[in-house]
Design a protein around this nucleic acid. Structure first.
Length: 853
RNA sequence: GCCCAAGUGGCGGAAUGGUAGACGCAGGGGAUUCAAAAUCCCCCGCCGCGAGGCGUGCCGGUUCGAGUCCGGCCUUGGGUACCA
C-alpha cells in the first residue's frame, strides 16, 4: 500500500499540463468561448489567504467550463502601480520598480505550485511601459473626445511635509509621518467626465442580471439620482454679484419651514467674504482642517458662521433668513448651498438648536400633533402625514406626493425649476506621486496644456529618482520634465502628476484579450473574447473599481478601442467575502502604532503577547487583511505541509464564498485526511478483483447521479462549500459500498471528475490510476441521468399546528387524499387530536403534511 | 453621519416559505494495538430521569407553517470618491 504524497503528484501533473498547453487560450470558431477573470492582485510580495480563496474559486469555474467544452480564457496579471511601492522606497531605500518586479517574481513563484489553470503567456503588469503606453495613448484619445478636462479639486495637504496625502495616510486628522494637522487645499487636476454618464451608468444597472443585487443597489445609491427644486433666494445686503443664492433641495415640501441658508466654505460667496473679513477667513480655515473624506466631513462637529447677510423667503418676503457658512455643506454636490429646515432634518435641527434658530414644522404625524419638536421629525417618504404648512393641495399626503406638488407649485409661481441631479462626481485622476502612469501632457508657456504626440509615447518614468525628501520626485526632476512642446517645439515642461491606479485597473480585462498588441486592443480579439463571462473579486470593490471600469469601457468604445457590445464588460459578477484576521497593535517608542504579524504573537485566551519579550499587545478583532496592518496570513505553510490540493479544498469547504471568514487553520489537516482517504480508496478499487459480483450497484449508481447533479448545481451557483459536503457524503457511501468493481470504478472516476476543479492534481492521479483516457482536465464533465435522481418512496414529516409530531413513509407518487388519510391514521396524530376533527389538512407533495385543529 | 451586508450548537457552517443544525472541526465513548501513531465505529443544540418543553441577535407582524417575508431596533463587517 502506498501513501498519498501531494508533493510528487502535484509537480508531476503541473508538468503534464504545461507540456500539453491545455490552458493556453487561442481564438477558435469551433467552441463557445468563456472568459473567467479574478480581480488581479496588487503585488505586495506575498500571497495571502484572500488570494488563494479568490483564485481557487476562479480556477474551479475555469476548469469546470473547460470540462463543459468551452474555449476558456483565464489570464493573470499585476495591478502594479501604487502607494505601497513608494512607502517601501522610503522605508527600505529600494527603488519602487525594483521592489515591484521582485514582488511579482516572488508572488508568481508562490502561485505556480497552486496549480491554477492560467494562461501565463498573457501575463501583464500595469507598471510596464508596454502596458501604460497604451493607457497614455487612450488618454490622449479621450482628451480629444472631450472625456477629460481640468479643474480645481481639494486634496489632503500636509503643511509640514508640504505634500499631498492619500486618505489612508491621514490618521485622525493628522499626517501619518509628520503628525501635523492636515488641511484641505485646492489643486488643479485632471478629471474624467464620468458624470456625463450618470444616467447611462444608472439605467444600465438593470441589464446586469448576473450581478449581486447588493452591488447594483450600492452603485445606484452612489450615483444618487434625485429629483428636486433649484431656486434662488434673493439677498438683502450681499456683496455685488451675489443678488441671489442658488440652492438645491430634494425636499421642497419643507420650504415653508426654512429657517436659515447654509453655504459651503468653498462657495464663491464664502471665498469672497474671507478675502476681506479676517473673522470669516479664520472660520473657513477652521473648516478646512481635517481630511477630505466624506466620513471626516460628515462626522465632524457641525460648525456655522453667521455672515450677517440676509435673504428673503420666496413665499414670505417679510421673513428674512440668515446666511451661514457651514462646514458640513459640500461644494461638489448640488449648488454648494442649501436651506435648512430644522423641523425635518436632524442635522439642521442640531444646527438650529446650537445657533438659536427657529424650528418650524411643515408637516406632523397628525392634525392635533404638537408642533414643538424635541428632535427632527423625518417620516418615511411613502407614509401619509399632515401638512400644516404645506403648499396648495391635499393636507394629508406622502412625502413623495408633497414633493411633486411642491415642485409644480413653485414652478407655477416662478420660484425655481424642478431639476434632476446626481450625487456622482467626476473622477479626479491626478496623483502627485511617482509610481504611476505619467499623464502624457506638456505645459508650454506659449501653447498652454498640450497632449504629447502619440509617436513620442510612452512617456516613460525616469529611473534616477530618490525618496529621501517628501513629495513627488517627478516634480523636482528638471531634466525629465524639460521637453520640447509637441505643438511649437519650444522648451516646455512635462506634467509631473501620474494617473490614479484605478485607471490601470479599468481596462486590464480588455488588454488580456490581446496582451501583446501594438494598439491598446485589437477589435477582432475584443469582439471574440469580451465580455468577461464571470468576474470574481472582493466585495470591497463593489463601487469604485466596478463603476470606473463600467465607465472606462464606455469611454474606450467612444474612442474606438472596444466594440459597443463590450460597454458592460462584466456579464456576471461574484463578490467573495474577505478573509479577515485580528490586528495586533502596540505603541512604538515614538508613540506611533506598530502592527505585528500573527506569527509574532502568542495567544492566551482573549489576550495576546509578543513571542519576543512577552509584552502584551492590543487585539483588534476581525478586520480586512491589509498589508499596512500586517494582519495577513501566509498560506505557504499549509501548501508545504499538505499540498496545494489540500489548501484549495480547504478554502472552498470552510465557508460560503460570499461571506467573510475569520482565518483559522484548524481544518486544514482534516482536509488533507479526507484527500488521503479518497486516494487510498482509489488504490483499493484499482486492486479489486473484477469478477462481476457485488451488491447494491444500483444504489451506488443512484447516489452517484445525485452527487453529479448536486455538485454541478453547486459549482454553477458558487455553492462550493455545499458541493463539497455532498462529495464528503458520496465518498463515505463509496467507502462502505459492496458493489461490483465495475460500479465502484465508475463511482471513483466520477468522484475524481467532480473533484477535479477543486483538487485537480489528485483527480488527475486517480483518473490515470483507473485507466481514464487522456487528462481529466479535458475529459467531458459527467451528466446526471434524470431517471436516477428520483426515489420511489419519501419520508414525510407530519405537523400538528405547525409542530412536528410524526413521520410516515409513502410512495413518492401517492395522491394527496391518500397521504392525508395516511397522516390522520398515524397513532401519534390520533392521540394528539384526541377525537377532535381537524379544521384543515395541508399536504405539500413530497414535502410535508400539516394538520390544523 | 450616510449607503450596503451579515448575525443559526463550543467553532466553521447547511436548509426552493415546509423535519433547524447537513457536512466538517473540536469534544466524549468504543474497536484495533504490548503500547502509541494511523485507521474504523458510535454519541454530541439547551433544559428535563422521562413524557415533554425551549431554541436561528432583540421586539413586533404576515402565514396552516418563518432561519427564510414585512416593520422597528442592536451588534459586527465593508464602502464613503487619493489603500487597492
Amino acid at each position: 500500500m502506498t501513501r498519498y504524497t501531494p508533493s510528487e503528484i502535484e509537480a508531476r501533473w503541473q508538468d503534464a499540463w504545461a507540456k500539453s498547453d491545455i490552458f493556453k487560450a487561442v481564438r477558435s470558431a469551433d467552441k463557445p468561448k468563456y472568459y473567467v477573470l479574478e480581480m488581479f492582485p496588487y503585488p505586495s510580495g506575498r500571497i495571502h489567504m484572500g488570494h488563494v480563496r479568490n483564485y481557487t474559486m476562479g480556477d474551479v469555474i475555469a476548469r469546470y467550463k473547460l470540462a463543459k467544452g468551452f474555449n476558456v480564457l483565464h489570464p493573470m496579471g499585476w495591478d502594479a502601480f501604487g502607494l505601497a511601492a513608494e512607502n517601501a522606497a522610503m522605508q527600505k531605500g529600494i527603488h519602487p520598480g525594483v521592489w515591484t518586479y521582485q514582488n511579482i517574481e516572488d508572488m508568481k513563484a508562490q502561485m505556480k505550485p497552486l496549480g491554477f489553470s492560467l494562461d501565463w503567456s498573457r501575463e501583464i503588469a500595469t507598471c510596464h511601459p508596454d502596458y501604460y503606453r497604451h493607457q497614455q495613448a487612450m488618454f490622449i484619445d479621450m482628451i480629444e473626445a472631450g472625456l477629460i478636462y481640468r479643474k480645481n479639486a481639494i486634496v489632503n495637504w500636509d503643511p509640514v511635509d508640504m505634500t499631498v496625502l492619500a486618505n489612508e495616510q491621514v490618521e485622525q486628522g493628522r499626517g501619518w509621518r509628520s503628525g501635523a494637522l492636515v488641511e484641505r487645499r485646492e489643486l488643479t487636476q485632471w478629471f474624467f467626465k464620468i458624470s456625463d454618464y450618470s444616467e447611462e451608468l444608472l439605467s444600465a444597472l438593470d441589464t446586469l442580471e448576473n450581478w449581486p443585487a447588493k452591488v447594483r443597489l450600492m452603485q445606484e445609491n452612489w450615483i444618487g439620482k434625485s429629483r428636486g427644486l433649484q431656486f434662488g433666494f434673493s439677498t438683502t445686503n450681499a456683496p455685488e454679484g451675489f443678488d441671489r443664492i442658488e440652492v438645491y433641495t430634494t425636499r421642497p415640501d419643507t420650504l415653508l419651514g426654512a429657517s436659515f441658508v447654509g453655504i459651503s466654505p468653498d462657495h464663491p460667496l464664502a471665498k469672497l467674504l474671507e478675502r476681506d473679513d479676517p473673522a470669516v477667513a479664520e472660520f473657513t480655515a477652521e473648516c478646512r482642517k481635517g481630511g477630505t473624506t466624506e466620513e471626516a466631513i460628515e462626522t465632524a462637529e457641525k460648525l456655522g458662521f453667521d455672515t450677517g447677510i440676509r435673504v428673503r423667503h420666496p413665499f414670505d418676503t417679510a421673513q428674512e433668513l440668515p446666511v451661514y457658512i457651514a462646514n458640513f455643506i459640500l461644494m461638489d454636490y448640488g449648488t454648494g448651498a442649501i436651506f435648512g429646515c430644522p423641523a425635518h432634518d436632524q442635522r439642521d435641527f442640531e444646527f438650529a438648536t446650537k445657533y438659536g434658530l427657529p424650528i418650524i414644522a411643515t408637516y406632523l404625524p397628525g392634525e392635533d400633533s404638537d408642533d414643538r419638536l424635541d428632535a427632527a421629525y423625518v417620516p418615511p417618504k411613502t407614509e401619509k402625514v399632515f401638512y400644516n404648512r404645506g403648499f396648495a393641495g391635499e393636507q394629508w399626503q406622502t412625502g413623495l406626493e408633497a414633493i411633486d406638488a411642491a415642485v409644480t407649485f413653485c414652478e407655477s409661481q416662478g420660484v425655481g425649476q424642478g431639476v434632476t441631479k446626481y450625487r456622482l462626481r467626476d473622477w479626479g485622476l491626478s496623483r502627485q506621486r511617482y509610481w504611476g502612469c505619467p499623464i502624457p501632457v506638456v505645459h508650454c508657456d506659449a501653447c498652454g496644456v498640450v497632449p504629447e504626440k502619440k509617436e513620442n509615447l510612452p512617456v516613460q518614468l525616469p529611473e534616477d529618482v530618490t525618496f529621501d525628501i517628501p513629495g513627488n520626485p517627478l516634480d523636482r526632476h528638471t531634466e525629465w520634465r524639460t521637453t520640447p512642446c509637441p505643438s511649437c517645439g519650444k522648451s516646455a515642461l512635462r506634467e509631473p502628476d501620474t494617473m490614479d491606479t484605478f485607471v490601470d485597473s479599468s481596462w486590464y480585462y480588455a488588454r488580456f484579450t490581446a496582451p501583446h498588441a501594438d494598439t491598446p486592443t485589437v477589435m477582432e480579439d475584443a469582439q471574440y473574447w469580451m465580455n468577461v463571462d464571470q468576474y470574481i473579486g472582493g466585495v470591497e470593490h463593489a463601487i469604485l473599481h466596478l463603476l470606473y471600469a463600467r465607465f472606462f469601457a464606455r469611454a474606450m468604445h467612444m474612442t474606438g478601442h472596444l466594440p459597443e457590445s463590450a460597454i458592460e464588460p462584466f456579464d456576471a459578477l461574484f463578490t467573495q467575502g474577505m478573509v479577515t484576521h485580528a490586528i495586533y497593535r502596540s505603541t512604538g517608542p515614538d508613540g506611533r502604532p506598530v502592527f505585528h504579524y500573527p506569527e509574532e504573537v502568542e495567544l492566551k485566551g482573549d489576550r495576546a503577547f509578543l513571542k519576543d519579550g512577552g509584552a502584551e499587545v492590543e487585539v483588534i478583532p476581525s478586520a480586512k487583511m491589509s498589508k499596512s496592518k500586517n494582519n495577513v496570513v501566509d498560506p505557504l505553510h499549509i501548501i508545504s505541509a499538505f499540498g496545494a490540493d489540500t489548501a484549495r479544498w480547504f478554502v472552498l469547504s470552510d465557508s460560503p464564498p460570499e461571506r467573510d471568514v475569520e482565518w483559522t487553520a484548524s481544518g486544514a489537516e482534516a482536509a488533507f485526511k479526507h484527500l488521503s482517504r479518497v486516494w487510498t480508496l482509489s488504490d483499493r478499487i484499482a486492486a479489486m478483483a473484477d469478477d462481476g459480483t457485488g451488491e447494491g450497484d444500483d444504489d451506488l449508481l443512484r447516489q452517484m447521479h445525485k452527487t453529479i447533479h448536486d455538485v454541478t448545481m453547486g459549482v454553477e451557483s458558487f455553492g462550493f462549500n455545499a458541493a463539497i459536503a455532498k462529495l464528503y457524503g458520496f465518498t463515505a457511501t463509496l467507502q462502505k459500498s459492496k458493489a461490483s468493481k465495475g460500479a465502484q470504478r465508475a463511482a471513483i472516476m466520477t468522484l475524481a471528475q467532480l473533484m477535479s476543479p477543486m483538487t485537480p492534481h489528485l483527480a488527475e492521479d486517480i483518473w490515470a490510476a483507473q485507466g481514464g483516457e487522456g487528462l481529466i482536465a479535458t475529459a467531458p464533465w459527467p451528466a446526471a441521468d434524470e431517471a436516477m435522481l428520483k426515489d420511489d418512496t419519501v419520508t414525510l414529516p407530519i405537523q400538528v399546528n405547525g409542530k412536528r409530531r410524526a413521520e410516515i413513509d409513502v410512495p413518492a407518487d401517492m395522491p394527496k387524499e391518500d397521504v392525508e388519510k395516511a397522516a390522520l391514521a398515524h397513532e401519534a396524530v390520533i392521540r394528539i387530536l384526541d377525537g377532535a376533527s381537524p379544521k384543515k389538512v395541508i399536504v405539500v407533495p413530497g414535502r410535508i403534511v400539516n394538520v390544523v385543529v
